[in-house]
Amino acid sequence: MAAPQQQKLKVNGPVVVTANRLTDGAVVWRTAAGGWSAELADAAVVTSAEAAIALLAGAQQRDIDAVGAYVAPVLLGADGAVAPGNLRERIRVAGPTFELPH
């Protein structure tokens, strides 16, 4: 499967822009203020392709903070809480789905 960055943009619901932090690869989300946050709750949520393209374009302007930005689906709870929209994004938020060796 092509990585999300390589796929045609489809927006059928709420989406965010996500990437990996340059220094350590940690998952980050684009905020409405034009920065990056390590908390999904801080992400700017948009619902149209036009807005998603604009958010992505802003995220890609400067690649020294975060890399590999792409648009990812999210789910909005009744209370407005943001949750990852598919398994891949759930794993990116919560880490591997099994206990890590220790």
Binding site: N20, L22, D24, G25, A26, V27, D63, V67, G68, R88, I91, R92, G95
Partner: peptide, 22 residues
């Protein structure tokens, strides 16, 4: 260096960017 410039250099040293980390 931009990411486009750096990516082939890191790959030549075995460094990938995965879901949550390098």
């Amino acid at each position: 260096l931009s990411e486009d410039e750096f990516k082939p250099l890191r790959l030549m040293n075995g460094v990938y960017l995965q879901l949550h980390a390098y």
